[in-house]
Design a binder for these strands. Structure first.
Lengths: 355, 355
DNA sequence: ATGAAAGCGCTAACAC
DNA sequence: GTGTTAGCGCTTTCAT
């Protein structure tokens, strides 16, 4: 089966190559009758345009690059849904996805962009002073980031609104009657790498607690049993009356639940646990965690849409609360609730609720 | 910064375009002196060959497609290391990787191959009657599978030797003195999908047990706490004296350990647990599991090497035992050990040990 | 509404 | 050892 060219399709359909090209590219000036004949020939000959020839002539490839992170603390379970979202949306636009890892400090990106293999690039987990951003500056490819750069680069981004999420998490727990709330945060490596999202959640939680006149205590947490126990014990030492925690650490959700069992803390009666993570992950542990859903697939899609948009505008995805079995009122409450009720009157709190 | 072409490099270096092309493609007939001058010009002008033009002319793209599975039971933690291995090896050959998901029943593969976007395809998790294999047959692209097809297709593959692994697992446990050994197998979805590897491990374990005159009891296991408890309780019901299990279920390792705690079974004194999984996963639970390491990154690399080889030959990767804290001798033993010793004399058992 | 024709940037056969 | 040259298969301007 030799390769069919546009010329063969053309002669099969009794038209010129340009007409076939017009049909292929949706030129509206082609008559319905001709279009159908050409389509029939394309099908009959099982024709596929040569991507290289098309790219050479048109300057477009309909391929986007996806640069996925490869840090030692990267959690595959967290990354993959973003990837699926990107691939899915890309294909909806008729694009393919070139997979890059950032092992070579931006050199892969430079290569695929400058050799015109891709029309655009999606960057995941951009750090401060990211070499990939530098590699991309001065190149003509479109680029978006999946995750908000810490320093405002000029690149459009789509990200989860971690700060609003932190605030909403506090509000939700306060509304339940909690006043002694802690934060079990991302591993310290994430903070050190200047990734932004860890800080932004931290800030949202701490600011909102302070606004409500409550104390804040947070602790980064390593994704091992020892790390989790350390963080947990540290928090209880600082806040003996702790009744609720926000957890921003996808890799440690079940470890945390085990650790709590080990410390004889019942969830939620001794401790309410509110996770910031993808819905799936919250559902896969026992008890099912109440979570602030990070809609990874949708965000991956969003990044591709941004690449497609004629005027890309960065945006943040609002947190959505997905109720689970891990949160409830604290054991002892009373006037706290009154205080809250008063507060709510002048400033509404609480995130959107999942349907 | 306009795009530099080969002609501009040529005139900058004072040579003809073909000479630049020869340098680019490593033609040995170019003199060292010329080669250096051309290289200098390439660097000075920051030149990158246009991938489309090169593909159009040469018929090669230096891109390989990776078709990753997207089944509901797919474990991202398991898949990603294979992907990393593929990407890494591809780049070592100067290739890029196009990422495909099999959402469209092979149509994506057909598209990228027939439009000449890729030179080869790596197929992950090929099933019996896989639509992707059908899509690929009759196409001229090279193709390899990462995972052995159940029905012998003609495609070269690299896979883990699950059958040998099953046998070696039994031997290892029998050598420790166990005689009541069970198998906690992959989720039933994996068996139903005719993926091969689940069956092959099952077969290895059961055959070796029978050869040694021991009973076999196995049970598929769903990756939820309920599923794990069901499988475990079922196994204990059938084999009340159970002292060891082989687990072939990456998604349930920590759930299993929790379930055992819940049933008051100490590991390894009440039950030895031998996992068939990637080394990493075995290290990340507590206690650290003894495992038969599935070297995913290396296998990913191997698939790419197969694509590169002039005469690709399928091969199976031998199991390597990585000792952990989850296996030991059973509580009560005695004459069993003698029986084994006799047996070993005429047929050596046991896998390669990790260094 | 359709066709003719001019390349896009590169490689490789061939000439010298 | 290096240059000349003829396209690869497609898109797109311009003509009709």
């Amino acid at each position: 089966m030799p390769d069919v060219t546009i010329a063969e399709v053309a002669s099969h359909a009794g038209v010129s190559p340009s007409t076939v090209s017009y049909v292929l590219n949706g030129n509206p000036k082609i008559s319905d009758h001709t279009r159908e004949r050409v389509r029939a020939s394309i099908k009959a000959l099982n024709y596929r345009p040569h991507a290289g020839a098309r790219a050479l002539r048109s300057g477009r490839t309909d391929v986007v690059a996806l640069a996925i992170p490869m840090y030692e603390w990267t959690n595959e379970r967290v990354v993959m849904p973003f990837v699926y979202g990107v691939v899915e949306a890309a294909r909806r636009h008729g694009w393919n996805v070139m997979l890059l890892t950032d092992a070579e400090h931006g050199a892969e990106i430079d290569q695929v962009v400058r050799s015109k293999m891709v029309d655009g690039v999606v960057l995941m987990e951009v750090r401060e002073d990211d070499e990939r951003v530098a590699a991309l500056s001065g190149l003509e490819a479109r680029a978006v980031t999946l995750g908000m750069p810490l320093q405002g680069s000029s690149m459009p981004y789509v990200d989860f609104d971690f700060e609003a999420c932190g605030r909403a998490s506090v509000d939700y727990l306060v509304e339940l009657g909690h006043t002694q709330i802690g934060l079990l945060a991302a591993p310290s490596g994430v903070f050190n790498r200047k990734l932004g999202y860890a800080q932004r959640l931290w800030q949202g939680v701490s600011e909102r607690l302070r606004e409500l006149g409550l104390d804040f205590h947070g602790c980064p947490m390593e994704p091992t049993m020892d790390g989790v126990l350390d963080a947990l014990d540290g928090l209880y030492k600082k806040v003996p009356g702790l009744t609720a925690v926000v957890v921003h650490n996808e890799g440690s959700l079940d470890t945390l639940l085990q650790a709590l069992k080990q410390r004889d803390k019942d969830v939620p009666s001794d401790l309410s646990v509110l996770a910031v993570c993808q819905r799936d992950l919250a559902l896969r542990v026992s008890p099912v965690l109440t979570c602030m859903d990070v809609p990874a697939v949708e965000m991956g899609r969003g990044a591709v849409e941004l690449l497609h948009a004629r005027e890309p505008t960065s945006y943040l995805v609002a947190p959505v609360l997905v109720p689970g079995a891990s949160t409830g009122p604290p054991r002892s409450r009373g006037r706290v609730r009154e205080a809250l009720t008063t507060r709510r009157a002048d400033k509404p709190v609480g995130p959107v609720r999942a349907t």
